[in-house]
Every structure is written in C-alpha cells, then in structure tokens.
Design a protein around this nucleic acid. Structure first.
Lengths: 347, 347
DNA sequence: TTGAAAGCGTTACCAG
DNA sequence: CTGGTAACGCTTTCAA
C-alpha cells in the first residue's frame, strides 16, 4: 500500500505538499498540484483513515447505540425507520455509522463501553427508553457528544429529539370523538418501555376527552408492547368491554395490524363495523389496502434530525456544543378507510 | 485522557510492560502486574483503539455493505434478519459493525470506496444481488477479505453463504402437489433482483412437477418484488387464471401477507377456500394467527454464518484465507394452518 | 509556495 | 522478566 511518502517521492515534493493537495486546502502551485495528482493516480494512493484519525483525534465514526437487545431492534419497523433516517443523513456525510446493538439487552453497558472507552467514535446517537438514564449521565460526565432519540430523563433540556406522544394521542382522540365515537378502546404503551414520568400517548387522549367535556373511560385502556401479537390477542378483551367499543386506538401500527387481523377473523370489517386508528403510520401501513387511518409519527425525521444535530455538534467548538436545545416532533393525523364514525344502526 | 505513558509513569514501569498487561499476553511478574492495574484504575485509563489500529494495521471494524439503497434495506424484514444474524455474532466478538447502506442504490460504489480505500475496515460482508459482481471482483483484486451473502457471480466458489432457493421451491411445490393441488399459482422473484444465471425458486418448483410426472404450468407464474403491495395486487391476476388456482406459493413472506389480506377481503379464507404458502418464515409470520405455512429460509443463519466465516478468515493468515468454500443453506417446510389441500366440493 | 521534523498513542524488535 | 526505541501514516508548527 502506497503511503504519502511514496507519493511525495514520486512527485518530487515533500509529504506536506501532498497532504495539502489531498485536503484541497492551502495554496499549492497548480503545476506541483498536477504532479502530485499524477503520482497519486499512478500509485493508486489512498490516505489511511486510521493514521489521519490518530493525528486529528477524530475517527469519523458515529455510534448508534440501542441498548435493548437485537430482537427488539431488528424486528421493530419503527426502530428501523429511525435508523434509516440517521443512515441517510450519515451516508451523505463523511461519517460512518457504527451500529451498536447488543444481542441481549443485558449486555448493553459492555457494548457501549467498548465504543466509548476505546474512543473510536466521535459522537453517539442514543435511543432512549426506560433505563437509559445512567448511560446518558455517563456520556455527559465524560464530555462525549451525543444526541438522544427521546429524552433520557425527565429534566433533560438539551441534545434530544422526541416525538411528542401526548399530542398524537390528543389528535387521534379528538378526531374519533368528533366522528361521534363515545366508546373508544385504547391499546397504549407498556409502562416498562416508558421513561419514568414520560408522558404517554394516553395523557393526550385524556386531554381530548376533557376538552370535549367528557369523562375519560380509564377502564378502556389496555397496555401494549407495540407488537403485532399483542394487538391480535388484545382484541378479545377489548371487545368484551361494556358497552362495546366503536373504535380502537392503538399506540403503534403493528398493534393495529394485529387488531385488524383479529377483527377480520371475527367477521368485523374495519371502518364499517368498527373503527381502527394506528399510531405510527409506518411505510407498511401506507401501502396497505384498504388503508389504515393513523397518527403519523415522524420516526424517519427523528433519526435524520438526530443525526443532523449530532453532526452539527461535531462541527462546533466543544464547550458550546453540549447544549443544543431539545426538539419535539409533532405528529399528524392521516385519515384513510378505517375510520368512518360509529355505525348508527348497530348501536 | 490518560495515555499508556501516564500509566507507566505512575506504576514506575515502561509503557511496554503496561502494554503487556493490557494484552494479557506475556509473562509479567504478578506484583508489577498489580501495580500496573492499580495505575490503570486510578487514572481511568483506556487504550486508544485508533493508535492500536495504526500500529497493528487492523481496525476491528467490519463493513456490512448493501449496495442497494436504504429504502430497500430498512423496510425489508428479510434483509433485517440477515443483518441481525451478523450483528449478534459481531456483538459477541471484538469487532464493530459499520453499516454501509447508500441512501440511493446509485451511490453504492462511492460508499464502498470510502470504506475500502481508506481502509478502515478489516473485512466486509457483502449482500449479493444483481449488479454486485464488479464490487466482488474489486475486492478480490485488492485482496480484501470479504464474504458475500449469496453468490456474486455464477462461477463464485469461495467466500459466500447462500440460501438455496430452488430447493425451497422444490420442497414447497412437492408438498402442495402431495396435498392434491394441481392448480398452483406462483408469485416468484423479479428477474432484476437475481444474479444472471442464478437459479430461482421457480426452477425448484419445476423440478417437483417433473418428478411428479406433471407438466409445469408456466403461465401460472407471476414475477414479484418481494413486497406486501406486490402480493396484495397480484391476487386479482392470480385468481383470474383458468382453471382457478387452489393454492398460491409466494417466494417471500411479505408477498404472502399481501395475498392473505387480499383474499380475506374477497371473503376467501386461506387454508379453507384456497391454500397459501410463504417463502421466508420470518418472525412476524411465526407470530401470526392463524398461522401461515411457509418455507423457512435460514436468513438469520445466513447473516450469522457469514459473519462467522469472515471472522474466521480474519484470524487466518492472508494467503489461505481467500479460499473458504461457499456454503449453502437448506430451507425447511413449516406447515401451519394455511395449507390443507384443495377443497373437493369446490372443484 | 514549500519542507524538515515533531508528535498522535500504540506495539514490538532487540537488548539487558 | 523488563526497558529503550523505532516504527505505523498522517498532520502541522515553524522556518526558509
């Protein structure tokens, strides 16, 4: 492998001049520049990234840490939308994406250590979920630049991007109430996935009821784990409620898919016999026919914005970079065929 | 940040001795070893991976290259199973996983360049699909260690792991024929996804027909792009065939999901009115109720075995490492509720 | 506009 | 069993 010295020798200049040419920086006489470029081509020279890293104390690697086990990550389409967002931004930059997902959630700390301690990342994207606070605190203590997807602890003010779950719940519930629904069943988030004190989608649902002057049916809420199965198996219990729900609002799309399937099997047609509203509006949902109405959570943007902010951090000088105010992403309602209001003649 | 010199100074030894302790290699007197360990702890010292890389000409990074655009990758559960397999193996090793997925398929070469040329990976996992041959040839020319998931070109003998598609097609078709089906519709692979000359699932289906002494209904084959939509929209054309198919065999699970949905909407119950067989047996399929029968393709193993082979390569001496014979993964049939044979009284 | 030489933090050859 | 010292390949201060 040719080094910068080989190039310098062949071009009859010093390594420094070659370096200047490579980094298109300084003013190099056009003629020498050409000579150097020729030598580079002739030797098929490519600068060694590792050496450059050592010198510049910069690796051009960014770690994307999801401290929750690979089952959770690779089989959840919502996770993948976030990763995709970050990937696309980083692919357009000079940075590499090091994906750090422990096989099991219990190995999380060890994984992160290997990235941090050995300092072969310049910054981190950290997926936030219950239990992540110690990690975030460690990053802060060590002065490591990071941005979290979701808040890592309630008081976090900086360096995060978060989908505002309550506002999604509010939007969806208001919509269903306006359609005339009075018996809505909710398949919400499981407490163990939420940061303590994090406001859930449900709190937004409650607000919508209050605004409408109605009492929120707390007994109509079931916790869910975001999965298809969970939605599928929840239907029996949801339908058992008295009075029977005329609509089901799910905190995630996969749960809604499971609900749709279970309803069909019971001969109930979504959007006709009973309304269903999803909570992510994932690409797969968008390609389903007939369409599932959903709260569109900007998951792709969560990832891309997070990566963008981190890159910005890395460009800034150290001190200021620590404190980029957190950003909230608002959800939007996408109405498709699964929500048409309660069936009058069925009530 | 403390360096090895700081530790050496504090422990009153030379950097070399510290190095020895860190790498648990040489024989260091227990007492000095303890002194060094104390110093390491006291200074919160962590070896710098970049410096180590430079010295050892080894980065401990492995690139996972999918030269096909992030839409394709992050929204295809089958891709993700493969990545998960590789991730889990690498997570248990000392290597980091650098995920290299261009935003658009057209940027593929540029992406790979940045990894290769700057040599900050020790090896590559390359996902093979139509058009990947030049990349593989380049790796070989440069002596870069890689393993491909799928063959990159027909004559490839070494360094690949492949799911044997024809044998899956054979298994599934034989099963359906044995159930008594005579009118089977196939939703196969799209030619643009296949390496030229690669045997498709369909060739295995044909073999099953031949063995049964039946003629393969070539007009019953539709190409698919593996997606849910594709399956959903194909149903109309599949059902239009004369005589009407009693079973639909899909080359991928997502296509089968789309088919199931479209059938339900037409009031046809899978496994009763018409049989459906999927081609991947993805985790999501496994969690569906009632179950979709499917050819279980070992996608997770594809990724994990690929990563395992690459790690093995990296441990070997250069010359020999280039030629690890390719491995084929056999699929298995998983029978669930969607395949029960043709309905006699409907024929 | 260009170059000599030091240094980034390791590892490793060769002495002691 | 341990230590001086030269690499690894690049950047960069300072001087010419």
């Amino acid at each position: 492998m040719a080094t910068i010295y080989d190039v310098a020798a062949r071009a009859g200049v010093s390594p420094k001049t070659v370096s200047r040419v490579i980094n298109h920086c300084a003013t190099v006489k056009e003629e020498t520049r050409q000579r150097v470029l020729d030598a580079i081509r002739a030797l098929d020279y490519h600068p060694n990234a590792v050496a450059k890293s050592l010198k510049q104390q910069k690796t051009f690697n960014i770690g994307y840490v999801i401290p929750y086990g690979s089952d959770f990550v690779f089989r959840d389409p919502a996770q993948l939308e976030q990763i995709k967002g970050a990937n696309d931004v980083l692919a357009a930059s000079d940075y590499n994406l090091i994906l750090s997902v422990p096989k099991s959630g219990r190995d999380a700390l060890r994984e992160v250590d290997s990235l941090l301690k050995h300092k072969n990342v310049d910054g981190l994207i950290l997926y936030a979920m219950a239990g992540v606070e110690p990690l975030a605190r460690e990053f802060e203590a060590k002065g490591l630049k990071y941005v979290s997807l979701g808040k890592c602890y309630p008081e976090q003010k900086y360096n995060f991007v978060e989908v505002e779950a309550p506002s999604g719940g509010y939007l969806g519930t208001r919509f269903l109430l306006n359609l005339g629904h009075r018996e809505i069943a909710f398949l919400g988030e499981a407490p163990q996935f939420l940061e303590p004190d994090k406001e859930s989608m449900i709190s937004g649902c409650i607000r919508a009821y209050q605004e409408a002057g109605l009492e929120f049916p707390a007994q109509g809420v079931l916790p869910g784990d975001y999965s298809v199965e969970c939605g599928y198996y929840a239907v029996e219990r949801l339908l058992a409620k008295q009075p029977a729900p005329t609509a089901i609002f799910c905190a995630s799309d996969p749960m809604a898919w499971g609900v749709l399937r279970a309803l069909r099997e019971r001969g109930l047609v979504p959007g006709k016999d009973i309304d269903v509203l999803g909570g992510d509006d994932l690409p797969l949902t968008q390609s389903l026919e007939p369409g599932l109405s959903a709260i569109h959570s900007k998951l792709y943007e969560l990832g891309s914005l997070g990566a963008g902010i981190l890159l910005e951090c890395l460009r800034m000088e150290d001190e200021a970079a620590r404190e980029i105010p957190g950003r909230y992403l608002q959800s939007e309602l996408v109405v498709r065929q699964s929500t048409n209001g309660p069936t009058r003649d069925r009530a």
